[in-house]
Design a protein around this nucleic acid. Structure first.
Lengths: 124, 124
DNA sequence: CGAATGCTGAAGCATGGACTTCAGTATCCG
DNA sequence: CGGATACTGAAGTCCATGCTTCAGCATTCG
């Protein structure tokens, strides 16, 4: 069981979201497409830095971008975010359930778990 | 006005999730509390490494842990995940909306795929 | 008691991330 | 044309992560 998923794409999505600047950029972009300069405006960093953030978001699949003339326009891409969201919702549900039943389980001892945390397992 | 949220706690949550080992550990934990050794079992890393992952998860608020005797037991903590989920849901909704309207804008503005008779009113 | 178990702390190392500066290139504007 | 604009690439710094080994310290068991 315990499938170790090892999903590098999901890694990238969460990593991209783990930065407040990039999250803020996403918020900006939810108002519509923006150029690199427009994205850079609110922050006190160089254009280069913002370009690198865009690359991170693009690698994660969270945005796409296209250059027309000398301006690169960045647009949100909903699919990758949906995947991250699905992971979260699934797992949160799963363990909210568990916490729910915890109330009941506290009365008696639990048994739905194969590795038997309560018993000493000297198998090794 | 575009306010830059700068939320270090949320940073930590997403960063913690940006690692497949830690996500897999969370999956394990959704089956119930586990000791450090039990968490380590499926992976080919040292106990120390797993201890560090647990610390990362704990810093993010995703788990809590308590040591009884010589065994540290790790348990899921749903609240932090709910926060991450809320961020995702909010933003995904926001821009799904936008993409929705985008379809309409394309249809009336520059339409080569007028095949779909978009008679819906997207304003809400 | 002594040995095994379960973890923890300190240190070190390799890699990658976030940022910078500097030097371009391509485009647009007057 | 010439200059401003909008990026882009290369390189370099700095710090955080993820991992290791090794040593140590309680705790539990025979």
């Amino acid at each position: 069981m315990l499938q170790h998923s090892t999903d590098p794409q999901l890694d990238r999505v969460f990593l991209a979201l783990a930065d407040s600047t990039r999250r803020a950029m996403i918020e900006q972009l939810s108002g519509g497409p923006r150029s690199i300069s427009e994205l850079a405006a609110p922050y006190d960093v160089t254009l280069t830095a913002i370009g690198q953030h865009v690359l991170a978001l693009e690698t994660a699949g969270l945005v796409k971008s296209e250059k027309v003339g000398r301006v690169r326009t960045v647009t949100l891409e909903p699919k990758a975010l949906a995947r991250a969201e699905r992971w979260l919702v699934t797992h949160q549900k799963r363990w909210a359930q568990r916490l729910d039943r915890l109330g009941d389980l506290l009365a008696e001892d639990d048994d739905d778990d194969a590795s038997a945390t309560k018993t000493k397992s000297p198998k090794k």
